[in-house]
Design a binder for these strands. Structure first.
Ligand code: MN
Ligand code: MN
Ligand code: ZN
Ligand code: ZN
Lengths: 142, 142
DNA sequence: TATTAAATGAAACAATGTTGCAAATATAGG
DNA sequence: CCTATATTTGCAACATTGTTTCATTTAATA
């Protein structure tokens, strides 16, 4: 889907920096960090605007934030598929490769439902699995 | 258990700042952030030493880090019980109250085993459930 | 008590994220 | 198309969190 249509459908104003941000994410089939997005945006990039835009886009449901750890955040489009156009399910699981840094939305795998203590209520369940991807797992021969 | 015995058993040198850090965590039955630990350590607190010590204590298995989000990390003793002395299970679930900030180790609840793509391997599974605790859930009357 | 390796504290730095405000831009109406 | 208005942007300055280097201090050992 065209970036401008995504913005229009979510009632978010169409601006150059938002279009560029969405297009950067569309250019990858994996979630990207700020640095990875910046590399794909070349010049037209301002850190402050970036932070405000990811906030706006996350609030409007266009993207989601993936906190890998306290120093690494990745972002992904909620409708990431270029052909498939599937929606990411709520609270799906994410995988992070400790060797190559690759992050994957396992959007077919919803977070398990965990029992909470009496009286507690849940709004989000964030599951980040860390390990090694197929290319980085020791013993795998491709 | 005495802080100095914990250090001895894990083969970590006994220093004043490490003892104070462990005692700060022992003074709470909930995981604490750096700021919460600093408040409990009063004078004997140096940020650089703190960062090095939480690294050392986590590496040796005395404490574990809980990343709530990119701006909030909490720390908890692995043997937290004062009477119970139970071990925290590997990869247990954590709960974070979005209203009062309280973090809880649900150490009786291990992370679910999620299926990974072919060839992938897992080392850690971090599950953080966000929501409202019993005192902060709307509709709860205590 | 003396020796030695490790831990500490200070300074400087780096990365990430936020706030206030003036200038620029996007949408809506005429 | 032009103007009005609300939103977005970019800059500067700041805040927080975390790291590195190196000289000094301290802990463990003999
Ligand atoms: Mn995802
Ligand atoms: Mn825990
Ligand atoms: Zn990998
Ligand atoms: Zn609460």
């Amino acid at each position: 889907m065209k970036a401008s249509d995504i913005l229009y459908q979510h009632d978010v104003k169409k601006t150059l920096s938002r279009l560029a941000l969405i297009q950067a994410l569309q250019s990858s089939n994996l979630p990207l960090s700020e640095n990875e997005i910046r590399d794909r945006m070349h010049e037209q990039y301002d850190r402050i605007t970036f932070y405000r835009n990811v906030q706006t886009l996350a609030d409007s449901g266009i993207i989601h934030r993936i906190v890998i750890d306290n120093t690494l955040v990745k972002y992904a489009l909620n409708c990431c598929g270029k052909e498939k156009e599937h929606q990411h399910s709520e609270n799906h699981v994410h995988f992070y490769c400790k060797n190559c840094g690759q992050t994957i939305c396992l959007d077919a795998i919803p977070a398990h439902s965990y029992p909470l203590p009496e009286g507690f209520s849940m709004t989000d369940c964030e599951v980040v699995i860390k390990g090694y991807c197929n290319l980085c797992t020791p013993g795998n021969h491709a």
